[in-house]
Amino acid sequence: MTQGHRLAGRTVLIAGATSASGAAAARALTDAEARVIAVGRDAGKLADLAAEVPGIAVETCDLSDEADVAALAERVRAASGPVDGVLHLVGGWRGGGGLAGQTEEDYRFLENSLTALRHVTRAFDDDLRASDGARLAVVSSTAVTRPLAGGANYAAVKAATEAWARAVAQGFAKAARDAGQPLRAASVVFRVKTLAGLEDDLARAFCALWGEDADAVNDTVIDLSGRSA
């Protein structure tokens, strides 16, 4: 079965979709005949994305707000049914100045990405576990393996993001074992040094997850930093 056929008809949510990476993922998923739901907090940017990638659905949501995410999940299920995939692209960068430059304001800004991931994965966990081929992917950083003082806030949040994604992976595996069923859902970490120039690589790598058995990719880290667009 081809990757396109594995993705065809599946509902995939892109969290934090109004970046270049979000647009690349929306195009790749649409080309693979998936139903795409692009989520962000800027209605204007979402409208631009919908014009750029015809056929996608867009949803305005503050992903750092638990109640807003719960309402989003209800709207998505009512309009499109359960989701089969989530690509988490909520992020950003603040850093520099050594440890003394790692302000609390900067940390809280960066922490929004982790908060959004927690809310989204909890809201859609039942959907992903029930799917016959669910995939969750988060974007982390090579800074996790070599954190620097000037990026301590950033590396700490990315490390926590990886821990959360791995916990989701363990939950998928345990649910399958407890039910006496084969594993069908997978949670994956993509690491990059920077996403600039790798937007299409990330999109292709995410789509390719549906071409692999869940057992082969669940709880794995895929380093994209050596690739070029």
Rank of each mutant, 00 (worst) to 15 (best):
Q3G: 10
Q3A: 13
H5T: 14
R6G: 00
L7G: 04
A8S: 11
R10F: 06
T11N: 03
V12D: 04
L13Y: 07
I14L: 13
I14F: 02
G16F: 07
A17W: 07
T18W: 00
S19A: 12
A20L: 13
A20E: 11
S21F: 01
A24T: 02
R27S: 07
R27A: 10
A28Q: 11
A34Y: 01
V36F: 08
V36H: 09
A38K: 05
R41I: 01
D42G: 06
D42V: 11
L46P: 05
L49M: 12
P54G: 11
G55E: 04
V58S: 05
E59C: 11
S64R: 15
A67Y: 08
V69Q: 02
E74N: 09
R75N: 03
R75A: 07
V76W: 00
R77I: 07
R77H: 08
R77V: 01
A78E: 13
G81M: 09
V83I: 15
D84Y: 04
D84E: 12
G85Q: 00
L87M: 12
H88S: 04
G91D: 06
R94T: 09
G95R: 07
G98D: 04
A100K: 15
A100N: 10
A100Y: 11
Y107F: 14
Y107Q: 09
R108H: 13
T121H: 03
A123V: 08
F124D: 05
D126Y: 06
L128W: 06
R129N: 04
A130N: 06
T145A: 15
R146F: 08
P147A: 09
P147L: 11
A149P: 04
G151S: 15
N153Y: 10
V157R: 00
K158W: 00
A159W: 11
A159S: 15
A160P: 00
T161H: 07
A163V: 13
A165T: 10
A165L: 06
R166Q: 12
R166Y: 10
V168P: 01
A169S: 00
Q170G: 14
F172V: 05
A173Y: 06
K174P: 00
K174F: 13
K174G: 01
A175S: 14
A179H: 06
A179K: 14
R184K: 14
A185G: 08
V188E: 02
V189A: 02
R191Q: 14
T194V: 12
L195C: 02
L195I: 14
A196I: 13
G197Y: 02
E199T: 10
D201G: 03
A203M: 12
A205V: 02
F206P: 00
L209I: 00
E212H: 13
E212W: 03
D213E: 15
A216R: 11
V217N: 02
V221N: 03
I222C: 07
D223C: 06
L224E: 09
L224C: 09
S225A: 13
G226P: 04
S228G: 12
